[in-house]
Amino acid sequence: MARFITTRFLQALLSLLVITLIVFSLSHLTGSPIDALLPDDATQAQIDNLTRELGLDRPLHVQYFTFLQNAALGDFGDSTKWKGSSAAEVVIDRLPATLQLGGLALLISVVVAIPLGVVAAVRKGSSIDAVASVIALLGQSLPAFWLGLVLMWVFAVILGWFPTSGYGGVTHMVLPAIAMAWFQIAALTRLTRSAMLEVLDAEYIKLARVKGVSERAIVWRHAFSNAAIVPITYFGVLAGSLLTGSVVIETVFAWPGAGLLAIDAIRGRDFPVVQSVVMFFAVFFLLANFLVDILYAVIDPRIRHQG
């Protein structure tokens, strides 16, 4: 087990290194912060000054190694757009908002998708199965920004049940979290359904039926507890896609999270912040998957030996 964990960890680290290179080259290829920062009537002197000031006149590989050295120490440089803060500070400031919203979205998807998936499996082929899959699929069939805007208009502006947008308590989070979660519900429902179908076919379930165990107990105690492992393995991917989803939803709902920050940083060519936000996303994703791998290996020993 220790060896499995070490290997996985080293692999993740290696991935991270490659990601730094990609992120660094991409951000530097996209132009210069000078282009975004300077006003329309910038003079040549202003352009030259700022280039020097930001260290953009040094050779690219020198800039990369400086970046790598500092990044290893958790220093991503100073933000060019949020002047006065380091890039890492800017990102850390915004991360909690994204995690709150992502967490609620995750909760909503689980609470809706798992029962939906179980019911769809138990009543496979019935109209309930069909309705469940249509409900689940609806969220995946609409662009999230549009769904978000429609939710905002109906439930905030017209009905007044929730605030339209902005940062705040749970009431502020409900609409954006639903808009984000709905997209995931389809995937999670499908997964739960197929896992349940597989388990429900198993011998021991048939045996339990023969023994006269109640249907409720069969479904939830015997079948679901065994099928649950499958959705768990999906949480790594889910976490990643929630982060990506945050980019759009946070824009629509003016939610001051890391997704909105990422867009602003890219548009503002704020390389240090772009680099740190992507690194945070990547580390988060790799970590989530690392944990899922370990969890999975603990539950299912065969995995350890597959490499």
């Binding site: 805007l149 905002m152 208009w153 502006v157 007044g160 339209t164 902005g166 629509v252 003016a254």
Partner: peptide, 13 residues
């Protein structure tokens, strides 16, 4: 607030 439709919603609400 970046989205104009969101700004409108905030005003109307």
């Amino acid at each position: 607030v970046a989205e104009p439709a969101t700004r409108l919603a905030r005003l109307l609400a």
